[in-house]
Amino acid sequence: MGIVIDRSLCVGAGMCALSAPGVFDQDPDEGTVTPVGGAAPDPGDPAVRRAVDTCPSGAITLAP
């Protein structure tokens, strides 16, 4: 189980950066999701789960 990011779906609403600012940021030009640092987002982190739950476009999902 891991976090899958599909930037082609991202609309730059910023819900991930709002929910988990230490994990997700936004591209300064397009506003699309960019992971912070090198580590993969931890699906066990409640803030990351919130980012998944509130992502409006399905750009951040939980892999089965």
Binding site: V11, G12, G31
Partner: peptide, 16 residues
């Protein structure tokens, strides 16, 4: 729609 979002979303990021 995506083209416009890409042009505009960067102006309204959480950080900005």
């Amino acid at each position: 729609h995506t083209r416009y979002r890409r042009l505009l979303a960067g102006k309204f990021t959480v950080r900005r």
